[in-house]
Design a binder for these strands. Structure first.
Length: 575
RNA sequence: CGGGGCGUAGCGCAGCCUGGUAGCGCGCUUGCUUUGGGAGCAAGAUGUCGAGUGUUCAAAUCACUCCGCCCCGACCA
């Protein structure tokens, strides 16, 4: 395409409201514009990248045996009431009424719609398994949209849903999708890693997130340096420690001490001159309205997701001051397990501790020399804490590393959560009615593009990997007023285009510097510079965006060279 | 929803404290020069100063209300 005919508004200034690099560059490169909070328009250049990604996804999904459908974005309340999510999904679900006063929502995801579709038309095991996907706009009324298209309210997503006759089939469907996702992100040229993840409120026992590695990522993960274990930080397990023998002879008499105004671990630690490791933190949680005490070593953090999952609670949050006062008889900061009337959950980190410090359930008092068994009893002993960098791999005991990433894909085993609630059943060979086993698989489209930028940029702008690049080549005539230069550039443009390459011809009457800057900013992988001096030698210059490498080629050979590079870089096997 | 910040030309910002006829840089338009890494000179155009109400002879500036946006937190298939 001729640059002069493109709607490609590039900018020099960094927009003041963009903090992450992908957001800044997408705006500067003329890919996106914000309409209002959490809503973005894609301009031609940005939309080309989106379509590139979608095409890769389509190819791999089709290859994996999935079929593309297109479901409505507006969904009736009844469907969500059936699944129970009309109540549970919360404020992220944008609800509204039509003229007949019927209730609807904008689809944040499509389990309900797909399950409704499938249950009506799939009746027998002969029609299973089935995997249906779509690429569709979702709407989630995010509390706080940020980072440009990375976390916005309206966004494109590829979502797939599998239906199987049994667990074994569902497992196979899951594995297929897992493999397809690996192919997709590898083909995009991204550095990524699948990690074990919590399945959250969508349900299901088993899930993996696909993380694109990036320092700016919103998610933290850990991975083992020895084996293949990798997990989202909120899921990452802590191995159960071996319990050393505790000699009851070591137990010292329980002591109550006055600790005025010492509420936090730091304050208590400083006041009593004991290490945080010798203090036990007692946190009161509200799990669906019931209070629980969670005990953890003073220097560790509680992982609320683990607590919630352990208790099977729908909602879990730290108790309010009021609830703490009611359950412990003391204000926040003085809770402890001794004589408490609620269930006590003990984290692994406390198991070896003796003669530790806890709150006394009495304002301005703590207890010293507290011991498990003698001074209080526990209801549960499990892993409730956030992994720390001291921890070893729960699988092999190897050293663990922390990293940050952007969640671009998530594969879930849903089981029968939706098929049961919404009666998606089939008849098996014996004429028995059975519930379908489901899986669901999502990829955030815009987010993946943004993640691609987070991983591929330099001080001059975006550095697209070939498979995502909006155009593969840009031809830059140095001076449009020189007839020979323009004629050569134009011919080259027509030749490259005819050979099937995606090419921009920068025919603008701009100074060379401006064109170079724009070409770099929008990240076109290959640039051919046509200038008078080289042309007189029958040569043009090829510049590789990624490496900055600069080489002269005879005019006759450049097309072939370009073709070769593009084909090579589109081939995933090179990776 | 809690805390903080911002709203002035397409973009980035100054002016506000201490009220007195709206400014800078980039971009844009026109002309001349220039032409291999965001050119130079000259001449221009562009604003309901987020909205409303109030105080005042006079409000971008002070007060109140509302709206929008951003950041931190809470929240999040």
């Amino acid at each position: 395409m001729r640059y002069s005919e493109m709607f490609l508004p590039t900018g020099r200034e960094v927009p003041s409201d963009a903090e992450v690099i992908s957001h800044q560059l997408m705006i500067r490169a003329g890919m996106i514009r914000k309409l209002t909070s959490g809503l973005y328009s894609y301009l031609p250049l940005g939309y080309r990248v989106i379509r590139k990604l979608e095409q890769i996804i389509r190819e791999e999904m089709n290859k994996a045996g999935a079929e593309e459908v297109h479901l409505p974005m507006v969904q009736p309340a009844e469907l969500w009431q059936e699944s129970g999510r009309w109540v549970h999904y919360g404020k992220e679900l944008l609800r509204f009424h039509d003229r007949h006063d019927h209730e609807y929502c904008l689809g944040p995801t499509h389990e309900e719609v797909i399950t409704s579709l499938v249950r009506n038309d799939i009746k027998t095991y002969r029609q299973l398994p089935r995997n249906l996907y779509q690429i569709q706009t979702k709407f989630r009324d995010e509390v706080r949209p940020r980072f440009g298209v990375m976390r916005c309210r309206e966004f494109g997503m590829k979502d797939a849903y599998s239906f199987d006759v049994d667990e074994e089939g569902a497992e196979k469907s899951y594995e297929k999708m897992f493999a397809a996702y690996n192919n997709i992100f590898r083909r995009c040229g991204l550095k990524f890693r699948p990690v074990e993840a919590d399945s959250g409120s969508i349900g299901g026992k088993y899930s993996h997130e696909f993380m694109v590695m990036a320092e700016s990522g919103e998610d933290a993960m850990v991975f083992c340096e020895k084996c293949s274990y990798a997990a989202n930080l909120e899921k990452a397990e802590v191995a159960c420690p071996e319990k050393k023998r505790i000699f009851e002879d070591d137990w010292l008499p329980l002591e109550e001490i006055n600790t005025p105004d010492s509420r936090t671990i730091e304050e208590v630690s400083a006041f009593l001159k004991v290490d945080p490791q010798d203090i036990v933190k007692t946190l009161i949680f509200n799990a669906d309205g019931k209070p629980y005490a969670v005990l953890i070593r003073g220097d560790q953090e509680v992982n609320e997701i683990k607590v919630r999952n352990y208790l099977g609670a729908a909602e879990l949050e730290l108790a309010t001051d009021e609830m703490i006062m009611k359950t412990t008889g003391a204000p926040r900061g003085f809770a402890g397990p001794v004589n408490i009337k609620i269930p006590v959950l003990l984290d692994y980190s406390v198991i070896d501790m003796v003669n530790f410090v806890t709150g006394a359930n009495k304002e301005d008092y703590h207890l010293k020399n507290v011991n498990i068994g003698r001074d209080f009893n526990i209801q549960a002993f499990a892993d409730f804490r956030v992994v720390s960098d001291q921890d070893k791999c729960p699988r092999c005991g190897g050293d663990m590393k922390f990293a940050r990433g952007i969640e671009v894909g998530h594969v879930f085993k849903l089981g029968t959560k939706y098929s049961k609630a919404m009666k998606a059943v089939y008849l098996d060979k014996d004429g028995q009615e059975k519930i379908m086993i489901m899986g669901c698989y999502g990829i955030g489209i815009g987010r993946t593009v943004a993640a691609g930028i987070e991983q591929n940029y330099d001080e001059n702008g975006i550095v697209w990997p070939m498979p995502l690049a909006p155009y593969q080549v840009i031809i830059t005539p140095v001076n449009v007023n020189e007839k020979d230069v323009m004629a050569a550039a134009e011919n080259l443009y027509l030749a490259l285009k005819a050979s099937g390459l995606e090419v921009i011809f920068d025919d603008r009457d701009e100074r060379a510097g401006v064109k170079f800057k724009d070409a770099d900013l929008i990240g076109i992988p290959l640039r051919i510079v046509v200038g008078r001096k080289n042309l007189e030698q029958g040569k043009v210059e090829l510049k590789i965006r990624k490496t900055g490498e600069n080489k002269l080629y005879p005019l006759q050979e450049i097309a072939q060279e370009i073709k070769q590079i593009v084909e090579q870089e589109l081939n995933p096997d090179r990776l």
